[in-house]
Design a protein around this nucleic acid. Sequence first.
DNA 1: GGACTGTCTGAAACCGATTTCAAAATTAAT
DNA 2: ATTAATTTTGAAATCGGTTTCAGACAGTCC
Lengths: 349, 349
Amino acid sequence: MEKEKLNTAKTITIYDIAKEAGVSASTVSRVLTGSASVRKEKKERIQKIIEKYNFKPNALAKGLSDTSTKTIGVIAADIRNPFYASLFVSCELAAEAAGYSVVLANSLGVKEREVNQLDYLMQQRVDAIIQIGGRVDDLVTDDSYAEKLRDICKTTPVVVTGKIDKAPVYSVSINQTKAMDIIMEHLIGLGHEKIAMVGGLMRVVSTYNKYNSYVENLKKHGIAVKGEYVINGNYDPVSGYEGTNKLLELSEQPTAIVAINDFAASGALRSIREHGLRVPEDISVVSFDNTYTADILSPKLTSIDYDYDHFGKMLVDTAIAVIKGQKTDDNQMVEPRLVFRESTGKAPD
Amino acid sequence: MEKEKLNTAKTITIYDIAKEAGVSASTVSRVLTGSASVRKEKKERIQKIIEKYNFKPNALAKGLSDTSTKTIGVIAADIRNPFYASLFVSCELAAEAAGYSVVLANSLGVKEREVNQLDYLMQQRVDAIIQIGGRVDDLVTDDSYAEKLRDICKTTPVVVTGKIDKAPVYSVSINQTKAMDIIMEHLIGLGHEKIAMVGGLMRVVSTYNKYNSYVENLKKHGIAVKGEYVINGNYDPVSGYEGTNKLLELSEQPTAIVAINDFAASGALRSIREHGLRVPEDISVVSFDNTYTADILSPKLTSIDYDYDHFGKMLVDTAIAVIKGQKTDDNQMVEPRLVFRESTGKAPD
DNA sequence: GGACTGTCTGAAACCGATTTCAAAATTAAT
DNA sequence: ATTAATTTTGAAATCGGTTTCAGACAGTCC
């Protein structure tokens, strides 16, 4: 198609509409927002012209005037990770349903970026900020970040997944303890006693909570806690792979592996296969997050799900409630459930 | 942490800074933007105050005044798909490097949403729009969408992946023909002649191009084109699974399967395994996109890669060039390359 | 018909930046 | 010391909406 010169065609404004309709801009604005009544015939005339030009009011001007942008900023650690992507999309849908839109800021796990993204969202005058994952989950939160967050909380509601007590934010967190309880009951119920945990970092709150629950569950069932059964990692496939390699070299191999997420589990699956063992006949694997990765792998993973739609809606509803000044719980919980698939089974004799 | 009432603390403006520094707002603005020189002592005084309050100018006011927001809107079909997510992130990084920021609009493949997202981005006064995937790829593009796009092109540069000739957009497209050439040469070089193609829809331009190249390559090598070796699908794991099931029921099973993307390939892998066959000893599988999925599966997938960083940078550079009124190629190509992994091998005898 | 009430409407101020324009303050030149 | 040339500076206009305020208009009631 031939490309005419990008002609910077004058964008049409509310004043243009007003002039053509023979009314004032105020009246057009009233029709647009429905904030006050306008004589029927005028209203229809104006609407016709709006329609004709497909006029859409400038969001910048509107936001400047309103001091509300009807926009929620979402900071995600890395949108390429399906866990964050799923949660982001359900936030987006929940926000839309409530008449808000959502702007994404990707921190990519870089501390400096995370601070910049906060600045960026504040400059954009978002009405609230939702942070999913990232720095807020870190036990050793950086001070400049916490300080910035504290500042922001003075003017803008902040809702985070996980928990942070260095700034007055609202939180919607996964009940990690319960999630691990469910997994351990599942595995122990299948006869497993040699249970390993692989792929996470203990300085991350969510992982730390899971670890504690892991230990508690073992104790409760009178099973000895073995240090060499817990292997740290970086939440990626390689971590799961290398961690599992180590586990399989132990004189007493575990019969079940709890991976910190589906990515780590994929690595575990690979390691097990390379050792000539079968899942779940020889070793069971279970993980957290139930992203689509769990469904793609062979065998399909048994994994902990959080009902992402509901999770996202809780985050958004909380943000909007605080925006509107309604009373809201400071700390809410998302309840996990187990999706049983092909990767777990009875412990070998 | 105790939650003080969200106190709507007056957000600080350029006027507040000006007053405290004993200068006019104009002067503060000049310091902020560096648009004109300011006496050194004053400048330092002002900077100190800006620093002290960590003042960041209101992006809405700035955009309104400038009529440029230094923002590029990106419409992606579904950010949960790792192909789009990777491309989005590299667009984001390229934009940042050029002093722009990026706002994501997720169409989720819903036609109506796609049109709304265009409106939304225009209301936000983005300086350009990049559309990755989605409606623009569709051969039977909807008219209301094309019309809107044509309208937008009058005022705002639009860059799309794929090609569309119903609106004067710029395009950066993958050389699909070349991509399929590479795959076919790879497979035929390994001795394969019974080659199937699975998982895509022929009304999608990119798939159609691949199909044509598939046929050409077979002909070139004097291999008969068999209709039953091409099975449509919806780009997801289930399509790959069911399509491969059909292929394996044929009296003459293929020895190689070209999946339309890594998702479809994951389904193919599952089907093959369930039929008691091995990859790549009995059947080779190769796919397009080289998302991380390719690296997670066992065996790891041989897949076509596009160098996402470069791809994203081309999209953004093109958008920015058009914004700046520089001359730019209407149609650019991204060259594919094969990443050889574990899922392809010599044809069985 | 006049007073009163309620509904519509436009002018003007405002949101918070940038930029133009002309005046004020410096500096350089003679 | 004057005048000319520069550099700095602030007032005011602008971007495109919303909202307040007060006046215009229409309808109701006596």
